[in-house]
Design a protein around this nucleic acid. Structure first.
Length: 330
DNA sequence: CTGATTTGACCCCT
DNA sequence: AGGGGTCAAATCAG
């Protein structure tokens, strides 16, 4: 079909560019969070500037998407998730155990391109995930786990991710993200924007990259209370290991509210295109798996698996703030 | 009781 | 035909 557009741009290159854009966006989002710590006068301004950057990045990414879609001769929009092959073809079959299973093929966005891929030591990324499958993969000695955003049902958030233990370094995970979060659940925004007049020192509760939490975010394990409600930020900040795939380690110097200078931060974000996260933030994920992470919640429980959707705390939720909070200046 | 995970089965895509 | 992504019943924890 389309032939002219994508032909000039090698797929690999567009993928690389896309990846850079994703990382830049992440960095900008991170930066945004920090700029919010500024005083009331500068915060809105900084907010707008960063929003502008995010907007540009987003549009660049979508433009790139269009190009590569055209290049790949992609057919389904995959945006809403519906469409693609199967169409509406409800089927019914009987499993070996005698159960009748009806299946409706609504969204089989199979050839969806990853929006991001990271190698990380922690599975937390600030979103609440729900595991919906696990599978042994051909060329891998470790199973692959499939997660989707918890808010898929209530908000139609199509974000997904696949998690697999890194072959080269089993202490790390290869996390592949598909789709973007469209959910706007406040509970996924631990970074509470200080209400007007709120004491700024609550910053410590907003982001805490402190190392005190080296081990397990076991608390983050969903199995506890309703995972979507997990928002322990208020309590002991010391227990919160807010690691993030944004390679925060490279950017922030942690500990008790000591934040980087903004310009330093910008330099870090821009300079290091961000964010290749090999965030070796403790081996929390593994630790967690050790002490009861495995099959802690589920049924049968046999094969080794990943910790059940570790909701992350750290969190930089791109575009998660209500715009109303940041009115435009005249 | 509610909600999350496990796990085998199903089915699309390559 | 087989691999891989998803579904959904079964199971379990809080």
């Amino acid at each position: 079909m389309a032939s002219s557009l994508g032909r000039d741009v090698p797929a690999e290159r567009t993928a690389a560019v896309a990846n850079d854009l994703v990382e830049a966006r992440d960095g900008a989002a991170t930066l945004r969070v920090f700029l919010l710590q500024l005083d009331d006068h500068r915060a809105p301004w900084a907010q707008r500037v960063v929003d502008g950057v995010l907007d540009r990045l987003s549009s660049a990414m979508s433009a790139l998407d269009d190009v590569s879609d055209a290049a790949a001769g992609r057919r389904s929009p995959a945006a809403g998730g519906s469409g693609s092959g199967g169409a509406a073809r409800p089927q019914q079959s009987v499993s070996s155990s005698g159960n009748t299973r009806k299946r409706s093929f609504v969204s089989r966005s199979r050839s969806q391109r990853p929006s991001d891929k990271k190698i990380t030591a922690t599975l937390e990324d600030g979103h609440v995930w729900r595991k919906y499958g696990q599978k042994e993969i051909q060329n891998s000695s470790y199973p692959r786990s499939y997660y989707r955003c918890t808010h898929r049902s209530d908000q139609g958030c199509n974000a997904k991710r696949q998690v697999q233990v890194c072959e080269a370094d089993p202490s790390k995970f290869v996390v592949t993200y598909y789709g973007d979060h469209t959910c706007r659940d406040p509970s996924t925004i631990p970074l509470v924007v200080p209400a007007a007049g709120a004491a700024p020192d609550c910053a410590n509760n907003l982001i805490n990259f402190g190392t005190s939490g080296t081990n397990n975010n076991a608390a983050a394990s969903t199995t506890g209370a309703s995972s979507s409600q997990y928002l322990a930020m208020g309590g002991s900040a010391a227990d919160q290991l807010s690691t993030s795939w944004c390679a925060s380690d490279d950017v922030f110097s942690s500990s008790a509210g000591s934040f980087m200078q903004v310009d330093e931060l910008i330099g870090a974000v821009v300079g290091s295109a961000g964010v290749t996260s090999t965030a070796t933030v403790g081996s929390s994920a593994l630790d967690r798996g050790g002490h009861g992470g495995m099959g802690m919640a589920g049924g049968g429980g046999g094969t080794a698996s990943f910790p059940p959707s570790p909701n992350g705390l750290g969190s930089f939720v791109v575009g998660s703030y209500d715009d109303d909070l940041f009115p435009m200046d005249p």
